[in-house]
Lab assay of single mutants.
Amino acid sequence: TEYKLVVVGAGGVGKSALTIQLIQNHFVDEYDPTIEDSYRKQVVIDGETCLLDILDTAGQEEYSAMRDQYMRTGEGFLCVFAINNTKSFEDIHQYREQIKRVKDSDDVPMVLVGNKCDLAARTVESRQAQDLARSYGIPYIETSAKTRQGVEDAFYTLVREIRQH
């Protein structure tokens, strides 16, 4: 089974770092803004072998026109913010609204991801993020692309959301 996953969120929150940590098991430290990259990885989730087709997208506003296209083809979405960047957390709402509009559905598989949880300088409390996820009816997972904490959990949870859909 193949799953088309799309990673969305503001610029600099760590979308590529999360994806590369999942696929290649290493942490990319330097920031190089993405336009669009796709990665494929075969994994076993709950005993089922599946192929993850992951689209890593641009957070930069100037590429926002490309969003409709990949939102149409994606089956599930990782909505990523950084726990030390309140603005990126506030941006999640717009991504969710755009996904709902493009998919013409209120019920699209999504996982809210709070990345950079290895950093002490948190400005978005776990509780705020949990409340937001609960209001959307989606899971919330904290990750660190640096330490790998929660990385597999985030992507695998999204696959489970798609399966249950």
Score class of each variant (00 low, 15 high):
Thr34Leu: 03
Asp118Val: 02
Glu90Asp: 08
Val43Pro: 06
Met110Val: 04
Thr157Leu: 12
Gly11Ser: 14
Tyr156Lys: 06
Leu158Cys: 07
Met110Cys: 01
Arg163His: 13
Ile23Thr: 13
Ile20Cys: 02
Gln42Cys: 09
Val7Ile: 03
Tyr31Ile: 09
Tyr136Val: 10
Gly47Pro: 08
Phe155His: 00
Ala121Phe: 06
Lys103Val: 06
Asp32Thr: 05
Tyr136Lys: 07
Tyr31Ala: 05
Glu161Asn: 13
Ala133Asp: 05
Val44Asp: 08
Ala133Glu: 04
Glu75Trp: 05
Glu152Gln: 09
Glu75Ala: 05
Tyr31Arg: 03
Gln164Met: 05
Tyr140Met: 00
Gly59Ala: 07
Gln130Thr: 09
Ala17Ser: 03
Lys41Gly: 11
Ala129Trp: 10
Arg72Glu: 03
Thr143Tyr: 04
Tyr140Phe: 07
Arg96Val: 15
Pro33Cys: 06
Thr49Ala: 09
Asp29Gly: 13
Thr123Asn: 04
Ser16His: 00
Leu51Ser: 13
Ile20Asn: 01
Ile23Phe: 13
Gly76Cys: 10
Tyr156Leu: 13
Lys103Ala: 10
Asp53Trp: 06
Tyr3Ile: 07
Glu90Pro: 03
Gln60Arg: 15
Gln98Trp: 13
Ser105Arg: 09
Thr157Pro: 04
Gln24Arg: 04
Gly14Val: 00
Phe81Met: 05
Val7Met: 07
Gly59His: 03
Gly14Leu: 02
Gln130Glu: 15
Ser135Trp: 05
Gly76Met: 14
Gln21Arg: 09
Leu22His: 15
Ser38Pro: 03
Ala121Glu: 05
Ile162Met: 12
Asp29Cys: 10
Val7Cys: 04
Arg40Phe: 09
Thr57Ser: 08
Glu125Ala: 08
Arg67Gln: 12
Asp37Glu: 01
Arg40Lys: 06
Leu22Phe: 10
Tyr70Leu: 15
Thr34Glu: 01
Leu132Lys: 05
Asp46Leu: 11
Tyr70Lys: 00
Val113His: 00
Gln130Leu: 10
Ile23Gly: 15
Ser105Gln: 11
Gln128Val: 13
Arg101Pro: 03
Ala154Ile: 14
Tyr156Ser: 15
Gln130Pro: 08
Glu62Tyr: 15
Leu78Asn: 01
Val113Ile: 08
Gln98Ile: 14
Gln94Val: 11
His26Tyr: 14
Arg72Ser: 05
Asp53Asn: 00
Leu78Thr: 01
Asp131Ser: 07
Leu132Asp: 03
Gly137Leu: 05
Arg96Gln: 03
Gly137Lys: 04
Gly137Met: 08
Val13Tyr: 02
Gln42Leu: 07
Glu48Met: 07
Glu48Cys: 13
Gln128Tyr: 11
Arg148Gln: 13
Met71Ile: 06
Arg148Tyr: 13
Glu61Met: 15
Asp104Arg: 12
Gln94Leu: 13
Gly74Asn: 02
Met110Ala: 01
Val6Phe: 07
Pro109Leu: 05
Asp46Tyr: 12
Val102Thr: 11
His165Ser: 15
Thr57Leu: 09
Ala65Lys: 00
Ile20His: 13
Pro33Val: 06
Lys87Trp: 09
Leu158Arg: 00
Gly76Gln: 01
Thr73Gln: 15
Asp104Gly: 13
Ile83Asp: 06
Arg122Thr: 14
Glu48Ser: 09
Gln69Cys: 14
Ser105His: 07
Val28Pro: 06
Lys100Asn: 05
Glu75Arg: 04
Met71Ser: 01
Val6Ser: 05
Asp68Ala: 03
Tyr136Ile: 10
Gly47Cys: 10
Glu161Cys: 06
Tyr70Trp: 02
Glu61Ala: 13
Ser126Gln: 04
Asn84Met: 06
Arg122Met: 10
Cys50Pro: 09
Leu158Gly: 01
Glu36Asn: 03
Arg96Ala: 14
Gln164Tyr: 09
Glu152Tyr: 06
Arg127Gln: 12
Ile83Pro: 12
Phe77Val: 03
Leu112Gln: 01
Thr157Lys: 10
Ser16Pro: 00
Gly59Asn: 00
Leu5Arg: 01
Leu119Cys: 15
Gly14Asp: 00
Ala58Leu: 01
Ile35Arg: 06
Ser88Glu: 11
Leu55Asp: 14
Asp29Ile: 07
Arg122His: 13
Phe81Val: 07
Ala65Phe: 01
Ala154Thr: 02
Asp107Ser: 11
Thr1Trp: 09
Val7Gly: 03
Tyr39Phe: 12
Gln128Leu: 12
Phe89Ser: 05
Asp131Lys: 09
Lys4Pro: 09
Glu61Ser: 12
Leu112Glu: 03
Ile92Arg: 01
Arg122Tyr: 10
Ile20Thr: 06
Val151Asp: 06
Ile20Ala: 04
Glu142Val: 03
Gln94Thr: 11
Thr19Pro: 06
Met71Val: 06
Cys79Thr: 04
Lys103Pro: 03
Ile92Glu: 00
Asp53Gly: 04
Ser88Gly: 08
Arg40Ser: 10
Gly47Ala: 10
Asp104Lys: 11
Met66Cys: 10
Lys116Ile: 15
Ile99Pro: 02
Tyr70His: 02
Asp56Ala: 01
Tyr31Pro: 02
Pro109Trp: 03
Asp107Asn: 14
Met110Ser: 02
Val108Pro: 10
Thr123Ser: 12
Arg134Ala: 13
Tyr3Met: 15
Gly12Leu: 12
Ala10Thr: 03
Val108Arg: 01
Asp131Tyr: 04
Asp104Phe: 11
Val44Phe: 04
Lys146Glu: 12
Arg134Ser: 10
Cys117Gln: 10
Leu78Phe: 13
Phe77Asn: 00
Arg67Ile: 15
Leu119Asp: 15
Val8Arg: 02
Ala133Leu: 04
Arg67Asn: 11
Leu55Ala: 07
